[in-house]
Design a protein around this nucleic acid. Sequence first.
DNA 1: AATCAATGTGTTTTTGGTACATACTACTAT
DNA 2: ATAGTAGTATGTACCAAAAACACATTGATT
Lengths: 244, 244
Amino acid sequence: MIKQTSLKTAAIEKSRHLEYFNIAVSVDCVIFGYQDKQLKVLLIKSDLKEFEDLWSLIGDLVQPNEDLESAPYRVLEQRTGLKDVYLEQVHTFGNINRHPSGRVITTAYYSLVDIKSLKLKLTHNELHWHNVADIVELAFDHKIILQTSLNCLRERVIEHPVIFNLLPEKFSLRRLQDLYEAILGQELDRRNFRKRITLKNWLDDINEMEEDVPHRPGKLYKIRPGLKNKKFEPIKIAPSLMAV
Amino acid sequence: MIKQTSLKTAAIEKSRHLEYFNIAVSVDCVIFGYQDKQLKVLLIKSDLKEFEDLWSLIGDLVQPNEDLESAPYRVLEQRTGLKDVYLEQVHTFGNINRHPSGRVITTAYYSLVDIKSLKLKLTHNELHWHNVADIVELAFDHKIILQTSLNCLRERVIEHPVIFNLLPEKFSLRRLQDLYEAILGQELDRRNFRKRITLKNWLDDINEMEEDVPHRPGKLYKIRPGLKNKKFEPIKIAPSLMAV
DNA sequence: AATCAATGTGTTTTTGGTACATACTACTAT
DNA sequence: ATAGTAGTATGTACCAAAAACACATTGATT
């Protein structure tokens, strides 16, 4: 198993003895998942004595021969085996004393993954899923990083079809609504929710029904092909709020 | 006069000979201004032979003893003499080859300043204001940084009262609308614009009129005290789009 | 005095969001 | 088998905000 965190710490301790502008650069991944109506985040036990018994985000130093953007993909693949995940840069955190072992600036990314698709790989591992809502403290400044990421996710999820990265391929509208509620932290009206989702035209009705549910089964849907990992980035023309 | 860019380049060239994870960290400031109905950005002549005759953003390496967030404030004060400017982190750029002198990861910030308030300091200087709309090429990856920053600014300006950092203390609604149009890149309807601005309740009518204008003078306004540099950050509750 | 160019405001229409009620389907307990 | 329960599924009325739009006002210029 990979023991990256120790490597990272050792390297950071080494770096503090170098001169002038020697600052270590890392990435930290806020890996979101969804299970049992709860938004989850994948955490690892901190290996620093300063943060004993605290959990931390999964991160690593940026390698000299890799693009910054590539680092979180590498970290995610090393930790979870997943490729082609949805990743989004959130913010860069660089307070002087944010890392006890030395000067480290970290760029935070959040990722959305389907917990079921990597369940087996996590057994016998120091990684665990935690309910986002229940987290009270994390190592380093990772609590703030988590909060910032969650805020970004909340904004993003409303207008862009990224939420489906957290769900299995087929899902009912009820499950989708549960997920929205878990992310947004508030209950939604079922009828209005369904209206708006159909309006967005993100879903394909696949003519299947839920099975083995203890009630009337709901219809199953898939995300329309091509939408799931699409990046909807900057080149957004001026919004309508102040239109002519 | 400060000759930071050369220092930065020299330091970067030195750093490439250091081992392993030695990556330089810089900040780049996209300093927006507004004049003659044009959105402007403050640029400096690149001092790298690779980018001869190209302009670049104003940046510097992050010092080992300063917070990342402090660096852009320092850069801005050194370059323009301005304190208490409005600054916002945009994104961090870290492609391997983005800087020809070595591995540099840069965090971009944008800033909004009133051009008039620092006009004198820029004479006999290698700094110049450029029309954002006219820029076709910049040194490094600064064109993309500029575009990304502009997109952030566009989003921000709609909901938050930050635009006033670009204006003198007193201004007419017409000037404000011109500025919105310059930023958003589209024309706005005067009546709807005024309605929405008054609805936002950001302005104080100071009972003064424009002077020396070749037409009917308009009323002058100020931003309401306390709003100008206020940060309206993350703790934003779930938006109304999907409310109960 | 008449014209021009800008400021300043009000009304209607349309759209989209919110609130809300009822019918339908499957499983469960009697 | 029947009634009850808990979920799915859908439609309608109301309200607020955004867009489209027209006219009166003020001051400078001719």
